[in-house]
Design a protein around this nucleic acid. Structure first.
Lengths: 106, 106
DNA sequence: TTATCATATTAGCTATAACTAATATGTGTG
DNA sequence: CACACATATTAGTTATAGCTAATATGATAA
């Protein structure tokens, strides 16, 4: 039985619940990318993406590495990558349920 | 390579990013409970908990079953239960990283 | 049927997350 | 050094999620 700090857990999980951040994660899932590459891929603005990157980094989900004038971002570790895979796997099984119900708070 | 609708995925993941909902999930992780039992456990108010239950239900994470005048809520299936386990497992490995960084958007 | 209890829903308010625009920092290059 | 480019940060605004209080629905039991 693992004991996890509740606030920490919520902070971590909340990071996955945003469209832009999910797109960033998909973008760097297989290889690290520079901020500009991510901005281009998502067709977003630099400031916004940078803030989301800071969020993901702050939650221990990604990490950045400076190389010359670029900063490369990638998934923090293998567990995170597997977690992303698990999301897709679980969702592929229940997505019809998620889609059909509109009866929710948010 | 699994293909998942992005909006659906975000909707699903967002459901896990709230303190009250995480507590509800922990509360019914091992056995289904009535709404009143959940309200008592969390020391929350009935309306609020009910709305969060609707959210979780709408996202395909839990399901409700009426029995007499009570409604019992439980995790929707085994995959969800495993997913909750995976969260704890991943977090137990990286929680120091999550804790140390404050540099994020939310 | 009326009363009671359990749960759901609604409306309005508050709090927080996300976006935009502007500016700052930091790194390499002429 | 000055300049250009990459990224980060900040302040202010907008959008959205969550809360509270009140009310509605739906089930059972007297």
């Amino acid at each position: 039985m693992i004991q996890i700090d509740l606030d920490l857990k919520v902070k971590f999980l909340r990071a996955f619940g945003d469209k832009t951040r999910v797109q960033i994660l998909e973008c760097i899932k297989y290889e690290e990318k520079t901020v500009s590459q991510i901005v281009d891929s998502l067709d977003g603005n630099q400031s916004n993406i940078s803030q989301h990157l800071a969020c993901l980094r702050g939650c221990g989900i990604i990490e950045g590495r400076q190389e010359g004038k670029y900063v490369y971002y990638g998934l923090r570790n293998q567990q995170i990558k597997e977690l992303l895979g698990t999301f897709d796997h679980v969702l592929s099984q229940i997505q019809d349920d998620v889609a059909c119900c509109e009866n929710h708070i948010s």
